[in-house]
Simulated scan of single mutants.
Amino acid sequence: MGGSVSLSISLEKVKAAALLFSLVCVLSLGILAMIATAGTETGEFCPTCPDWTNLDGWLAQRDAYERDQMNQQNGPQESGQAAMPPAAVPEKAPESYVRPDLITMPEGLDEKGIILDVRSKDEYLAGHISGARNIYWKDLQKNGDLEPSLLEKALGEEGIDESQRIIIYGSSDDEGGPFFFWALSYLGHENISLLDGGVEAAQESGAFLSTNPAAVEPTNYSDSIRPWMLVEPASLKGMLARSSLRILDARDFSEYGQSRLGNGSICLSHDKIYNDGSRIKPPGTLKNLFERRTNPDDTVIVYGTPQAYYLFYSLRLMGSNATLIQGDWWKETEWAVSNIS
């Protein structure tokens, strides 16, 4: 008897659950139907009321509806005339270098200025950009460092004065171009530019190479040396005392790991700022590199020549206040940090 009663109660519960489930399904379908037809009481299509029971069909209807609305906004179309396309969204302007006057692209060699080949005399005579004059960058050094009087004399002999624009180019195989850019900056020459990629990039862009030396008339060159563009032993202590100072090591990380100028110096090697050794990276890349390592108002000391000449140039190109240490005398100072036991 007790078993029959329990079975009867269980059957009643099952029936009740089934009835409740049916009611929920009916209610859900009703809600979906209301959503699908919301806003369509007049029979018009509602572009903001998705039909969740047939979403693909609703999306196709919405596209057709929007095209129809666009045609109506553009006014009546003549027979066979296509509807006006939507207005194009203007593209974001590409970023540019902060100092675009300091870089000449191989395609821009027709700009006015004196083109200066800083390779050796033999390389120059074997083939140079037409009209270029020649000063070999290594002839300006003593013990690997710039001798300003030699540069001043060479510029005068090549008929160049301090008021003229100079477009420098060298070879992608050495630091001649960036070195000469720094040397002219130190000398106080205002209007200078560096050919990106050197003579090799110019050739690839179709520049004509001549074997005829340029005819020049010697002149007098007057320098206006900027001492703040060169850090010397006597000035290093004062520089390091500045609050807004950053120190960048241009050598590769293995050299940086062995010795560096202070624990606060940061490694920024050549491969980070140049592609394939000679073509400088885009402005957006340089901007990100420098913003992560320096502040806009910082004075930036770069060291680790010869790589430092490239880094100095890239910093100036991006508007930074850069100065440079020549040679490795800094290793003998009290601020040098060595990890070699």
Rank of each mutant, 00 (worst) to 15 (best):
Glu332Met: 05
Gly206Ala: 09
Leu245Lys: 12
Trp137Gly: 00
Leu268Ser: 07
Leu289Met: 08
Leu11Phe: 13
Trp182Asp: 04
Asn339Ser: 02
Ile115Phe: 15
Ile160Tyr: 01
Asp122Thr: 07
Leu102Ile: 06
Pro218Tyr: 08
Ala83Ser: 14
Gln77Lys: 15
Ala18Gly: 05
Glu332Cys: 05
Leu23Gly: 11
Arg242Leu: 13
Phe180Trp: 03
Glu12Gly: 15
Thr211Asp: 11
Asp174Asn: 15
Thr323Asn: 00
Trp329Glu: 04
Gly30Met: 10
Gln72Ala: 13
Asn191Phe: 12
Gly75Thr: 06
Leu7Phe: 14
Gln81Cys: 14
Gly238Met: 02
Ser185Ala: 14
Asp297Trp: 10
His270Met: 06
Ile192Trp: 05
Ser8Lys: 10
Ile114Lys: 10
Ile103Ala: 11
Ser222Ile: 02
Tyr136Gly: 02
Ala207Gly: 08
Asp161Val: 04
Ser130Asp: 10
Leu248Asp: 13
Ile192Thr: 13
Ser172Gly: 14
Lys15Gly: 04
Gly176Met: 03
Ser171Trp: 05
Ala214Gly: 01
Met1Glu: 07
Ala33Ile: 10
Ile168Met: 08
Val26Gly: 03
Ser8His: 07
Pro148Val: 00
Thr285Trp: 09
Lys13Trp: 06
Glu158Trp: 04
Ile340Cys: 08
Trp182His: 00
Cys267Ser: 06
Val216Cys: 05
Ala308Asn: 05
Gly144Arg: 03
Asn134Glu: 04
Glu291Lys: 12
Gly284Glu: 13
Phe45Ile: 03
Ile340Ala: 08
Arg293Phe: 04
Gly284Lys: 01
Ile266Ser: 08
Tyr97Trp: 12
Lys142Asn: 02
Gly238Ser: 14
Ala18Gln: 15
Asn295Gln: 12
Ile247Phe: 09
Phe45Asp: 09
Gly170Asn: 01
Arg99Val: 13
Gly30Tyr: 03
Pro85Ala: 13
Glu175Cys: 08
Leu155Gln: 02
Tyr65His: 15
Leu125Tyr: 04
Glu152Val: 07
Ser185Tyr: 13
Leu230Lys: 11
Glu123Gln: 11
Glu91Ile: 14
Gly131Asn: 01
Thr37Ser: 04
Gln61Leu: 05
Asp223Thr: 07
Ile192Ala: 09
Ser243Ala: 15
Ile9Trp: 10
Val199Leu: 11
Met239Asp: 09
Leu194Gly: 03
Met84Tyr: 12
Gly131Glu: 08
Asp328Lys: 01
Arg99His: 15
Pro47Asp: 13
Ala36Gln: 08
Ile129Val: 14
Arg246His: 07
Ala201Trp: 11
Pro90Lys: 03
Met239Gly: 05
Lys331Cys: 01
Glu162Trp: 11
Leu150Asn: 00
Gln81Tyr: 13
Glu41Gln: 05
Ala88Arg: 14
Pro85Thr: 08
Ser278Asn: 09
Leu32His: 12
Gln69Ser: 12
Ser269Ala: 07
